[in-house]
């Protein structure tokens, strides 16, 4: 019992959510183990983003429970969950458009330090502390945004914005990272880059990742476990091999040609 609790970081139990008469989530349960990459897939409109919102606190569920890191967070607002170590990205990338790339990361690092009760920097200094800038630059180099470090974020291309947003989430040093379609709109090479990155942060920093994604190459290469959602219900949960072999999943989601057998 205790070992199960130990290894479960995010536990969603029988969550349901309706918009008016439309039930978007029906008794969805899942548990994410510490350090795994958990993928949620399903056809468009299956309820993935809604489930994400419920897990991140952007909207509250009608029934069921959400436990994160041993605490019941079902009714907690987002910023509280973030302080417990939950990071996220949005389906349409959102960054601080007037800030430079570096300042985007700096505010994130400062927020993290503030949330953690750490010293944000020397008490009277106005410029961000040297460590903060150093850390920001390192992250930026790491993800390959060095060439735009001083550009205003609103001027970045679609794909670069997405990567910047990813970086903002990463800068919070979350224990779990919630990624809603992290590679949408990226070129194939960038996708591979992001996939490698996700793999790396999991391996090196032990960050748990929960993601939705429509690029099955990414999902199949990364995920330790996959959950399939359809019409707000869990159709299947299992390993990559299980899901690939599942006839029902093939029908409602994978199709025949692009990821042909």
């Amino acid at each position: 019992m205790s070992t199960i609790l130990m290894s479960t970081i995010l536990d969603v139990a029988a969550v349901s959510k309706s918009y008016g008469p439309l039930a978007v989530l029906k008794d969805v349960s899942l548990d994410v183990h510490r350090g795994e990459i958990f993928a949620i897939i399903g056809p468009n409109g299956a309820g993935k983003t809604t489930l994400f919102k419920v897990m991140t606190g952007e909207s509250l569920c009608d029934g069921g429970r959400v436990r994160f890191d041993g605490a019941d967070v079902t009714r907690e607002p987002s910023h509280r969950r973030v302080r417990r170590g939950m990071g996220r990205t949005f389906q349409v990338a959102r960054v601080f458009r007037d800030f430079t790339v570096r300042d985007n990361i700096v505010v994130a690092i400062e927020a993290r330090r503030r949330n953690g009760g750490e010293r944000v920097g020397p008490a009277l200094s106005m410029a961000p502390a040297a460590e903060v800038v150093g850390e920001a630059d390192e992250l930026i180099r790491d993800i390959g945004l060095d060439h735009v470090r001083h550009s205003q974020a609103s001027l970045l291309s679609h794909g670069d914005k997405k990567r910047l947003e990813f970086l903002i989430a990463l800068a919070l040093r979350p224990s779990i990272l919630m990624l809603d379609e992290p590679t949408a709109g990226m070129s194939p090479s960038d996708r591979i880059g992001i996939a490698k990155l996700i793999q790396r942060i999991r391996d090196e920093r032990g960050i748990t990742v929960v993601m939705t994604e429509h690029d099955m190459d990414i999902v199949f290469s990364l995920a330790s476990r996959i959950m399939v959602l359809n019409y707000g219900e869990v159709v299947a949960t299992g390993s990559v091999a299980d899901i690939r072999a599942d006839q029902a999943v093939r029908e409602v989601y994978l199709g025949k040609e692009m990821y042909g057998a």
Partner: peptide, 15 residues
Amino acid sequence: LSVRQDPERAAFLGV
């Protein structure tokens, strides 16, 4: 300034 630019994004910095 970060709250001004994108309140929702800021909330997900724990603000």
